[in-house]
Structure formats: C-alpha cells, structure tokens
Design a protein around this nucleic acid. Structure first.
Lengths: 238, 238
DNA sequence: GTCTATAGGCCGATAGAC
DNA sequence: GTCTATCGGCCTATAGAC
C-alpha cells in the first residue's frame, strides 16, 4: 500500500517561461490600437509593482512614450485601471458562463468545466488575473460596484453547481463557504505560479487542479482514480 | 443517496466581527511600546490600502500623532514594513514548526496540525497574514532575501509531511506542486474572509479547512467521514 | 518624545507647439 | 498623436524648539 517516489520542491524559477507573452491580453474589439498597447503595458506594471507604485511615467516608458502622451488614450491613470479591471472581469465572467453552458447538465462535468476554464484563463492571462484579483480596492466607488456584481455573479455560478451536485448526491460538501474559497483560490494560485513553471503545459496544470477540485467537492470516485496513477507521481513544486 | 439542504451564499458582510481586534499583533517582547503601537497602526493600513498608498501621515493620524513623530520609533517608512514583515514571518514560521513538533509522527496528524495552525493564525491575525502575504514585494533586497528563506523553509515543512505521508501510503498525492499551493491558499483565504464572517468561531473554521486538506492530500477515510455529517450541511458563504 | 516648519523630490495632469 | 515645459500638490524625511 505504499506509493511511488515524490520529489521535493525547490523555489520557483526567477524568469518567465519562454512560451508565454507577459503582456498578453484577451481580444478587445472595442479598443483602439493605442488604448490596447497602453492597457497591456499598464497590466504588466500593475501586476508586478501594484497600481499605486506604477507611475504614468513608468507606463509611458514601457511604450517608448512620454507620460503626457498617455492622456491622448485615457483620461486619467484611474481610467486605465478601471478599463483594465472591468474588461478583465467581463472577460472572465463570460468565459466561465460559456464553459458552464457547454458542459452539459451533470454537476461533475460543470464543476470540471468551471475549474478547468478558470485555471486555463489564469495560465493564459496571469497578469490580468492578478490585477483584477488584487488591485480592485483602488477603484472608484462606481466601477467597484460593478466589479462586486461580477464577483457575486461568478460566485453564484459556482454555488449553484455545488448545490446541485450536493442535492443530487454526486458531491459531498460539508461546508459550502470553505469549499468555494478553496476552489476559487486554486485559480489565483495558477496565475501566480504558472509563469514560473517552465516545464508544464497549461492544459496539464488545469487537469491537476480539476482532479483536486473533485476531491474538494467530495466526488466519490476521486480517491481511487488518482491513487491509481502512481507512475506520474514525481513532481517539483515552488 | 441524496444529501441534506445547502444554503446559497450571499456577499460577505461589510463590517468586522465584533469579537476580533483589527490591530491585534502577536507578543513582541523586544519592541518598545511606541514601536508596537506604530506597527499595529501600520499593519491595519498596509493590509487595507497597501504599503505604497499608506502615507506616514495616515499612520501617525491613526495614533493621534504628527508624521515626523514616527521617526522617533523607526528610521523610515521602509523600516516599519521591514520590521512588520520580518516579525510576522518569524512568528508564522515558529508557530508552524512548533505545531509540527507537537503533532507526533503520523503524517496525517502532522498535516492536520499544519493546516489547523495556519488557519488559526490567519483568523487571529488576519491583517498581519495579509501584509506578509501581499506586501513582501515592496521590501528592500536584504529583508526580501530573509523572507524568501522563511517562505522556502515553510514550504519544506509541508513538503516533507506530504512526502512522508505519500511514501507511507496514507496520502495519495498525484502532483506535489498543485497540492501544496492549494493547501497554502487555504490559509490566505481564511485571513481574507474570517473577519467578515460574524457567526463562526476560528476553531470551527480551522476544522473545516483541515477536513478539506485531508481530501486534497488524498486521505482515504475522508470522503465517507464527511459524507456522514449531512446534518451540519447548511452553510452560508461570501 | 512630540511638535512646527520646511526642504527636496516625484507625482498626476494641463497647456500649447508641431 | 506626440512632444516639451510646467503647475500645484502631496510625499518622505530632516532641523530644531520645547
């Protein structure tokens, strides 16, 4: 009843994986090219230094511009953050909703789809995920209210799936609160860690988290199925 | 095979629980009273507005002082953050180490002790947990290196426990990386959420996370044991 | 150990030429 | 749409009285 070997984790690598564009941004049809470039540069800075510590001169320098030129594209530094966060949330919300719609009616398939999509988004746009997760507090009251609605709506998606799976008997959830927080935290972890894990594909990553999510939700088949895959058990961590 | 009812989550409450001191700080024998008060005030501001957005005037105002008076207690604003973060990490590291030592030799008991202690710390000192988790990037290179050592040492504690439990056969871990991140993220979630959950005790909270941690680690008995407690299944979430 | 006064610098944003 | 020049304001930190 013993398992295979399990390597010890080391610290995360210090550099970005070579196949990942740091300033990648989802498609933004309604923006001008200049606005897009400003948003991408701001996203990178906001994610690494934070909104307050990133100056307009920093953002402009990233684009080979002078700071006042930014004001041809956005009315203020606050407006840049606002556009970025609102766009990011709208994108995330619509992706999750779409994943849910295409997942069929089984709560297990729906939970898998939500977690998989969340992790894949976090891997593809890690800096956007970080910004919308950590810089929201610096928004003005009006955009903040919109973000709160998105957040609540996203929570409701997950809660409905968990509730249905629990009522149906395919999930075994003792406490909805902690279960939801744990599932949500997985996506944030992916955004923080994925860029510094050079040797893994986003899709593999997503499946690892999906498997853990099923355990968290108390899906009965979970334990035996992953205990059987002891050959793939070696892993590095950071 | 269906389960009991599960309430839908609402948004978190906007105010702090009445039994929790927002500026609580673990015992600090080596600090003067003035330094302690400055650190407590700074901790609250750093946790809510962030280090960069918190001015020396803000900190002083919290204590009924003028900003220059702070410099009688600390050499600079940076020094305040440094002391706070280094102290917080030293405390967390020693608490986790102590919990591990007192947990006996069973990997399951050790994992339970680590998660329980982590969550309890996050509930008792949520703002300190937040600051050491989110403001570390603003440290100077020298203290940053110390924090990285603490972080690595703490990761190693968890990794050793998971590795032993896996080798022994009591855990079933497919991928160490994602397993560790998920476990670590639970403590952060507790720090963010606990202050706004007025109707639950930290100890209950900790046991909920401990149960989820056992599922994440693939402890065999987990599923059936929590599936049996369907009477306590209703929960609100935020 | 707290205050007032202030230095010196960087910030967001505007004006206006090209 | 980008630039240079610049304003007014707030920031960290120091000087020095009490």
């Amino acid at each position: 009843m013993t398992n295979g070997p399990l390597q010890l984790p080391g610290p995360p690598s210090a550099t970005w994986r070579t196949d990942l564009e740091p300033d990648a941004l989802p498609p933004t049809p309604e923006l001008t090219g200049g606005q897009r470039r400003v948003l991408a540069a701001a996203m990178g800075l906001f994610a690494t230094k934070g909104f307050v510590a990133s100056t307009t001169r920093d953002i402009a320098a990233e684009l080979g511009m002078q700071a006042p030129s930014l004001y041809n594209h956005f009315a203020s530094k606050d407006a840049i953050l606002e556009r970025l966060v609102l766009f990011g949330w709208a994108h995330a919300h619509s992706e999750l909703l779409s994943a849910l719609v295409h997942a069929g009616s089984s709560p297990t398939a729906q939970l898998e789809a939500l977690v998989r999509t969340h992790v894949l988004m976090s891997c593809e746009f890690p800096r956007l995920t970080l910004v919308i997760g950590t810089e929201t507090a610096h928004l003005a009251p009006e955009p903040l209210a919109i973000v709160r609605n998105h957040r609540q709506a996203t929570r409701d998606l997950l809660a409905q799936v968990l509730r249905r799976g629990h009522d149906e008997g395919s999930f075994h959830i003792a406490h909805l609160r902690t279960t939801m927080w744990t599932l949500a935290a997985m996506g944030q972890s992916a955004a923080v860690q994925y860029p510094y894990q050079p040797e893994i594909h986003a899709a593999e990553f997503a499946e690892e988290f999906v498997a853990l999510a099923l355990r968290v939700a108390g899906v009965a088949a979970t334990l035996s199925s992953s205990a059987g895959s002891d050959a793939a058990v070696d892993a590095q961590a950071g």
